[in-house]
């Protein structure tokens, strides 16, 4: 199913020998797939981002002094309990919410400029397809808005539908597809205008374990073949460790980053890697971080 498409170049750098940094070396990003000496541009540079809002129950610190640097081609997962601000962080980067203080640049621009320049594709937890449009027309929605030619739209629909293995479903309406297929459509839609940055907010959160595993493998393939920078919010430790080059562990009240874990398994890894000791070691560290940051006395 998740076989790479002909256009995909299989990246051959052997990367398994790169040693995982054991400490909290945030800034060094052992990106396993890009060429070793390529200059790494910062895609996201967030310094001292805070976001507070007033509610009926008083002030809520959704984000408190968050620092985050993401370089080109990284796959960064945000993990943490609900209320830790991982979704908020993604929304701030997407300019769907504005921080109260701090400096943020996205691809060298302000978050708003980046949004206006259509610098990223956003995938929500729900597929958010337009029920009155066929799958094909759903994919065309951003393309129509961005003024692509009819011919180009058609080509991209074909390319990205086949990338998520949904060729043949062009004329179906969203309700005729399963939840997992719908989410794949929404990923294809986010990719359709070829942004280098992909923001994914728990895209597989509502799906069952088996579908989720399958989509994890597909997403890994996709990331490997397109070399996009991915920011990925999740609740699941195995998912985060399996997919990421960097795991950002967050904690609530106030929402903050408590650990950044580098993680570099070989790019052609399969789901079986989840049974291996080095995988479990990273997962264990994420778990310890989550536990440390979580106060159970509500």
């Amino acid at each position: 199913m998740a076989s790479p498409k002909p256009s995909i170049s299989i990246v051959s750098e052997a990367t398994a020998e790169t040693d995982r940094g054991e400490g909290a070396s945030h800034v060094r990003s052992p990106d396993p797939i890009s060429a070793p000496k390529a200059p790494k541009r910062l895609v996201v540079d967030a310094r001292n981002i805070s976001l507070t809002f007033e509610t009926a129950d008083g002030r809520v610190d959704a984000l408190s002094n968050v620092n985050l640097q993401v370089t080109e081609g990284e796959f960064v997962s945000f993990i943490g309990p609900s209320g830790c601000g991982k979704t908020t962080m993604l929304r701030v980067i997407a300019d769907l919410q504005q921080p109260s203080s701090g400096a943020l640049s996205v691809k060298g621009m302000s978050a708003e400029q980046a949004r206006l320049a259509r610098a990223y594709g956003y995938v929500f937890q729900a597929p958010a397809l337009f029920p009155w449009r066929t799958i094909e027309k759903n994919l065309k929605m951003p393309l129509e808005i961005m003024g692509y030619s009819e011919f180009e739209q058609q080509q991209r629909v074909q390319r990205y539908l086949s990338m998520v293995n949904l060729t043949g479903f062009e004329r179906k309406f969203p309700w005729q597809l399963s939840g997992g297929m719908q989410q794949r459509v929404s990923i294809a839609r986010a990719l359709s205008f070829d942004p280098d940055l992909l923001l994914m907010d728990e895209p597989f959160g509502a799906l069952d374990e088996i579908v989720r595993d399958h989509l994890n493998e597909q997403l890994l393939q996709l990331w490997k073949s397109t070399r996009k920078t991915v920011l990925f919010v999740t609740h699941s430790i195995p998912e985060a460790v399996f997919l990421s080059t960097k795991i950002v562990v967050m904690s609530p009240r106030p929402g903050r980053i408590i650990d950044v874990i580098d993680c570099d398994f070989p790019p052609d890894r399969s789901l079986e890697i989840r049974e291996r000791p080095e995988f479990l070691k990273v997962a264990q560290r994420v778990r310890i971080g989550l536990r440390a940051g979580h106060s159970y006395d509500e």
Binding site: L96, Y122, A128, P142, F193
Partner: peptide
Amino acid sequence: LQLELMRTW
């Protein structure tokens, strides 16, 4: 969500 998608585009 649909409105926010339009915003991201």
